[in-house]
Structures are given as C-alpha cells and as structure tokens.
Amino acid sequence: MHPNPPNTFSTLLAIWQLEFSRLFLTHRGIIYLITFAVIWFCILHYAVGPLAISSKPKLTWPVAELEVYWHLSFDMFPVLCILSAAGQTASDRERGTLRFLTLHCSRDMVFFGRFSAQILIQSILIIATLSSTLIMVIMRDPSLLIPGLQNAWIIALNLIFIILPFLALLALLSASFNSTRQVMVLAILIWILSATLIDRLSVYLPALDFLNYLVPGMQITELALLPPAKTFLLTHIPILQCFVLLVMGRTIMARSAL
C-alpha cells in the first residue's frame, strides 16, 4: 500500500489528533483535566462569584464576574500552561520516540505541530472556563448575556495572545532539554527571575528598560488597566515575543542531535 504524499495540513491534523487524544483519552490527561476543573471550580465559586457581588464593577468592564475572571486569569493561565504544555518534545527526546517520529515527518512539523496543538488545547480550556463564568453571570442577571458575550470574546482572544509567548518558551526549552520537569522548572525560573531582575536593573539603569520586552507576560500590568476596546493595542508584544522564541526554538530543534 502506498500513501498519498503528505501535505502540511494532513500532517498537522494527525499531530493535533494525537495531542488531543493525549489530553482527553489518556489517564494522565484526564487527571490533569479533573485537576484543572477543580481549580477553576474553586476560583469561580470562592473568588469570582463573591468578589463580583461584593465589589462594584470597575470602570473598565461592564460585567463584574468577567472583570474578576480577567484579572485572575492573567496569572492562572500562564501557570497552567507551564504545568500542562512543558513536555512538547522533551519527553519524546528523552526516551527516543522523536527518532521514530522524525523518520515519518520533518522536525519542523513535529515542532510546530506540537506547538499549535497546545494553542488549540489551551484555547479550548480558556473557552471552557469563560463559558462557566458566563453561566454564573446569566444565573445572577440574565440581562447581562449580550454584554457578557461581547466581553467574553475579547477576553478569550487576549488570553490566547498572553499565553502565546509562554507556549513558545516551552517549545524552545522543550527542544533544548530532555526532561519535562527540567523544562517546567526552567520556564518558571526564567519567567520569575527575568521579570524580577530586569525590573530591578531598569530601576538603576533606566536605559535597560527595553529588556522588559524579553519577559513573557510583560504587558499584563498595563493590560489590566485598559478598557475592553483598547486591550488589543498591546497584542504586538506577545506576538513578537512568540515569533522570536519560535525562531530560536525551531533553530535548536533543527540542529539538535537525536
């Protein structure tokens, strides 16, 4: 039997299918999903709901629950990303599975296929938590459905942009190291240490302030102050960070010994 020559989309589709199976059909994936659901249940039940009811909505967002969700998810999604997407190619490299894979498709397809699969998976998780938040909003006040939907898609897109450089950083580290745990620890260290060190340095040497652009999520503080319509003004930062990290990761992936 001889197959048709593979095209980029069919290869990507095959990689996405396997990554979705890994999350939704394997024990490890289901345990992660249950943990994710429990964490978000606690956030929504004990934080979003009570805070939204007790505090007046700020000027920026018309739906209180979504405003609380918006601020909490800035940090939650990057952390959950690091926990779930660290092993994009690292564990496969460690056990030699990448050698099998790269006999059947190119290293570029493995690298970008795994990265794009994680974008899709994280997007689904973002939409799932936002939908739960919207249900809470409707249960409190059904008239907020339309403004809620209008704000929800803005939040969803912004969160996807926020996690892009984190996923790209994980893809880069995953192409460089052989262990998922190592990738996870390094990603957290890079995220926290680079933000802290560059922040401190730029206090003494303001000329180094531009280095903040190297830190994934550096736009979050500013983003939190913007009204919904203006949140897309900062999207160029994560997109550029993601692009640079992917170019570096792709180069390492192409050159690394398997």
């Binding site: 197959p3 593979p6 290869t11 095959a14 890994r22 030699g96 599975t97 099998f100």
Partner: peptide, 26 residues
C-alpha cells in the same frame, strides 16, 4: 534506531497508525 522507546501512554497500534498518517495514509 538503537535504544528508542515508544510513547508509553498510547497502544502500539495507535502509534504505528499515527506514523502511517504522518506519511500520508488516510
């Protein structure tokens, strides 16, 4: 390849089928 292992979370059939799909099989 020497000392290469399959992914432990998927069955052998699923992994071989995945490799075949990557090569262009439906």
């Amino acid at each position: 390849p020497q000392d290469s292992q399959f992914d432990p979370v998927f069955s052998i059939g699923k992994q071989l089928s995945h490799y075949a799909q990557l090569q262009g099989f439906s």
